[in-house]
Amino acid sequence: MNDNDKKKKREAKAYEKYVKNFTPKPHYTMNILKAFIVGGSLCTAAMYVQNVLTETGVSKEMAGNYVTVGIVMLAQLLTGLGLFDSIGKFAGAGVIVPISGFANAMVSTAIEYKKEGPVLGVGGKMFTVAGPVLVCGISASAVIGIIYWVIGVTG
């Protein structure tokens, strides 16, 4: 990086700082509180359903799967009905960070490109946001698996 680039960067930093004086700030406390309450409630509701299912004789693992699948399906349906964006506007990370956010990301990108066709439009765009999540998550799990395998073989 030469001196000119450095100077530009410094100026950019200074301007960013200057602009901050005029930029409205997000309502940190309120937003965090909303995310905490909505996210917490969603998890608690999921726990309750899971407990009811285990009581009726479903295995603990499958009960967990049913709950996950249920949240995913509900979130995707709400996205299709055009309600999820309003909920997200209120709750923020409270619905984005739970698995519902992942489900919403798939459908919201897919229906946006509906007019581009059911295969390349809907099918292709479904993964614009969800794709990176799957790619990074699955790759991380593979790396972890390999590390554990190496430890298992050598240790």
Binding site: G88, G92, S108, T109, E112
Partner: peptide, 17 residues
């Protein structure tokens, strides 16, 4: 919006700026 930002039905919050 769909070209430059996120899809319409995505549940994100817009920063106030």
């Amino acid at each position: 919006e769909r070209q430059f930002r996120l899809p319409l039905e995505h549940g994100h919050q817009k920063p106030p700026s």
